[in-house]
């Protein structure tokens, strides 16, 4: 599958970027500094692609490697 990153500007101005080949999503501030990472202790992300923020401030992440969409709190 493709390794192309997706990004989403969150309501607080930070930017969520998916890194499919690293199986992770990172949160950056506008200057490019890393402000958080979406992590899981078990059942890790599987090739995350597109993301969207919910009305109540959560993040739906598409997991292309396993064919599902999962919701995470934004770190």
């Amino acid at each position: 599958m493709d390794d192309k990153p997706y990004l989403r500007v969150l309501r607080d101005g930070r930017i969520a970027v998916s890194l499919p080949s690293l199986n992770t999503v990172r949160i950056y501030d506008a200057s490019g500094a890393v402000k958080g990472t979406v992590t899981t202790e078990q059942d890790p992300l599987s090739r995350p692609y597109g993301m969207v923020e919910t009305l109540d401030g959560k993040l739906w992440i598409v997991e292309g490697g396993i064919g599902r969409v999962r919701q995470f709190p934004i770190p």
Partner: peptide
């Protein structure tokens, strides 16, 4: 269900 989901919008 999906076979290769890639992007999402709301």
């Amino acid at each position: 269900q999906f076979t290769a989901p890639v992007d999402i919008e709301r």
